[in-house]
Amino acid sequence: MFPAQLTYHRAGSVAEAVQLLSDNEGAKLLAGGHSLLPLMKLRLAAPAVLVDIGRIEALKGISASDGGITIGALTTHAEIASSDLVQQNAPVLAEAAALVGDPAVRNRGTIGGSVSHADPASDQPTVLTALGATFNVTGPGGDRSIAAADFATGLLENALNDNEVLTSISVPSVPSGAGSAYVKFSHPASRYAVVGAAAILSVSGGACSSASVAVGGVETKPARASSVEAALAGSDLGDAALDAAAAAVGGDLSGDPMGDVFASAEYRRAMAAVYVRRALGAAASRAG
């Protein structure tokens, strides 16, 4: 496990990181290293330049913001899993963070690195899609925001330009009284999600007043399950309603699911319905 030769830079600030990215074509950002370094050790990735942003304090931590919370890109999964602010505003994000990898991965891996890597089997992109989060980005021309659902553009591809840095993620608070859940079919080896389903359900007067559902692991990027959400709207969230809604997830998949030796495309598709159903059941039981 011997990475190819490279030049290493440590950026002291976001501005310096942006400058280093602009000056070095093909440079890659290094945060927690838990996605990039394994690829480099296998020589599946061989960036000539690494820009380490791991010590930029401005990118760390979780804070309350208008209508929700803001999570610095360098915040680790372990910090998210144990954060009171996350627990109060978006408990489903903490639930998912606790299921990422293993303790070593959670202690080193960062939410920004995870979402930027754009592995469709990661947990957080699915949850952030369901939460309707916004990704805050800094580049040479200034700052911009990208909706979570638009951030991953394909398998291991994201919407960042080569010289942009993801700085933070804005997560809106879930509605008061909403129930949420993330359930995961964990790969026994990698612990990535073969299928991951996130659901946030609100109830008003015995009927579903809002539903947000996303499913990951099945296709090359997380899918917002709008057919499922539509089927839930106004329903009583009883077993029959949840069964019918979960079955609708097929309509939210593009028809081009991923498959591998462990789980075929057909199986993943079938499991998407099962895991969405389980997420809906758990979220409904927590709503009210």
Partner: peptide, 20 residues
């Protein structure tokens, strides 16, 4: 698992599932 070309598909601990 080898594929039909004799490539080891389970070539790392990401795919080869050891007991945990």
């Amino acid at each position: 698992v080898y594929d039909d070309d004799g490539q080891l598909v389970t070539g790392s601990m990401l795919d080869y599932a050891l007991p945990r």
